[in-house]
Nucleic acid binder design. Structure first.
Lengths: 218, 218
DNA sequence: GCCAACCTACCGGGCGGTCGGTAGACTGGG
DNA sequence: CCCAGTCTACCGACCGCCCGGTAGGTTGGC
């Protein structure tokens, strides 16, 4: 997660703004890991401070507060999603290729490091209202991007009788859930998981047999 | 959620055991709602007490502690899953019918009342180790039940080149995610959501075209 | 000598949980 | 018909603890 350094500059509003960015990146990385493991509310500032070898007061040299720390991590995760998933997928012209890009890239990201991305969806209620509105808005945009892609597939005749909203949410659920069961040191390797999930996602929305095509309603 | 009453008798180990079961059911119902909305750690005993018109001390007449309350709710949710999803599905002999029963029944349950079922997956770290082991074990059994169903489909030749474990987890993710976006008062109605999700789930795992059947590896 | 990078010591407050008490309904003996 | 005794269902006050956050240093490299 070396990209965290640059991300911190981008979300500078949450940090003191003068401290060593490498050290701050290390702190944010550890915070994300602990928030992910124990949950935001169950994690104390002391837990994070201890993990980076500081006292609580020492940690406050680098952060403005617990909620700002959470928002910075979630903003970073959202930036990551934008840069690694949404932007590359947007460059795909074919709707089906675009869908495959979304799913495989998002799944890949989660197998690489799920901390920040998982916090992004699980700890929304820990944010201040304004920050929460910001994050939720960006998440909504993402789901709409997927729904639009499904709608484009429908216009091509490749999808019949599927509500794009339900489809988009279902795919997102499938992808996000990966962080709950995938372990880098487990039986399954990341390439296999990404490929399999992508195949399932595409199969879930594409109609390939007459049976579904003939009976779009019900 | 009237079935809560009987569930409470079943999980009597967590309550004082003498108090009015109706009142206790009301308390558990409210607790589940608030845990669901704010999260376990962000919810104080006072929040729950106030919601049922008691003081904190008064509430302790009915419950043994915060963690026991959580475990009771999760046990109830797991009982619900057993009775409404797993048992009925087990009675389906055909693997495909069984899969459809699992998905549609589980999805239906979530559209009806997601509180307890959502707590079941999101608040595991709030439990004592022994209780957590209990719940995780039951959840693992459920995923294995789905994986076995997928394996049976594979043995029938209806599924090719799909890892049953990945498939089972992905379907579970799709289903559980419903509680995050479905609103009973929203644009989509429950029947539509259940039907659509079930169709997607089946499509995701069944191979219906030659393309997939010819190339199981990769 | 200065400033970045920390620390010790502390604050107010809310937490989960407990304790002693009590209003009021109910019960049974005279 | 009464009243002592008992039990259910609660409450006010309190406990120790830990939380997020801060004030005011101290230290070591430039």
């Amino acid at each position: 997660m070396t990209a965290l350094d640059s991300a911190l500059h981008a979300t500078g509003r949450t940090a003191t703004g003068e401290a060593d960015p490498d050290r701050r990146a290390e702190i944010y990385r550890n915070a994300a890991r602990i928030f992910h493991r124990k949950g935001y509310h169950a994690t104390s500032i002391n837990d994070i401070a201890a993990a980076v070898g500081l006292t609580k007061a020492g940690l406050y040299y680098y952060i403005k507060g617990k909620q700002d720390l959470l928002f910075a991590i979630m903003s970073f995760a959202m930036d990551q999603l934008d840069a690694q998933v949404i932007e590359p997928a947007r460059r795909e012209q074919e709707p089906q290729a675009r869908l495959e890009a979304i799913v495989s890239r998002h799944a890949r990201l989660i197998t690489q490091d799920s901390s920040a991305l998982t916090i992004l969806v699980n700890e929304l209620e820990g944010l201040l209202p304004d920050d929460r509105a910001d994050i939720i808005g960006r998440q909504r945009d993402y789901v709409e991007f997927i729904a639009d892609t499904l709608a484009a597939l429908r216009d091509e005749g490749k999808v019949l009788g599927l509500d794009p909203t339900i489809g988009a949410f279902s795919l997102v659920g499938m992808i996000l859930w990966i962080s709950r069961w995938y372990r880098a040191d487990g039986r399954l390797d990341a390439d296999e998981v990404v490929a399999e999930v992508t195949r399932m996602a595409v199969a879930a929305v594409l109609n390939r047999n007459a049976e579904q095509a003939e009976d779009p309603d019900e």
